[in-house]
């Protein structure tokens, strides 16, 4: 069963940045894209056990802070070594100035 989780306020995340969001024993990354849209992915890099929240958002790419691997956070696609496995993404909606993510 899936549910929408209230993750944060829209103004909790600067444009072209991300935050970490923990819920139900899992960790997620919530992104605020340069065009104003919001996205959500798994919170840790698929290469090693590293939180992406300390990484750098450049346009629609998140770069892992440990090894500089890159993902397109809109699709989860692995874009640059050493990451080879895509990042899991989650549906996002914005209502009343809040960001909700849909998790299993």
């Amino acid at each position: 069963m899936t549910e929408w989780i209230d993750a944060c306020a829209t103004d909790d995340i600067d444009a072209e940045d991300l935050i970490r969001f923990d819920h139900g024993g899992a960790t997620y990354a919530i992104y605020h894209a340069p065009d104003g849209d919001f996205f959500a992915t798994a919170g840790k890099c698929t290469h090693e056990d590293v939180h992406l929240s300390n990484g750098l958002v450049m346009d629609y790419v998140i770069e892992c802070p440990k090894h500089n691997g890159q993902f397109d956070y809109r699709t989860g696609e692995a874009k640059r070594a050493p990451v080879c496995v895509n990042l899991k993404t989650y549906p996002v909606k914005v209502e009343g100035g809040r960001v909700f993510i849909q998790v299993a």
Partner: peptide
């Protein structure tokens, strides 16, 4: 060596 250096940082 791209991978070797990733391990060096890990």
């Amino acid at each position: 060596w791209r991978w070797s250096h990733a391990r060096h940082h890990t």
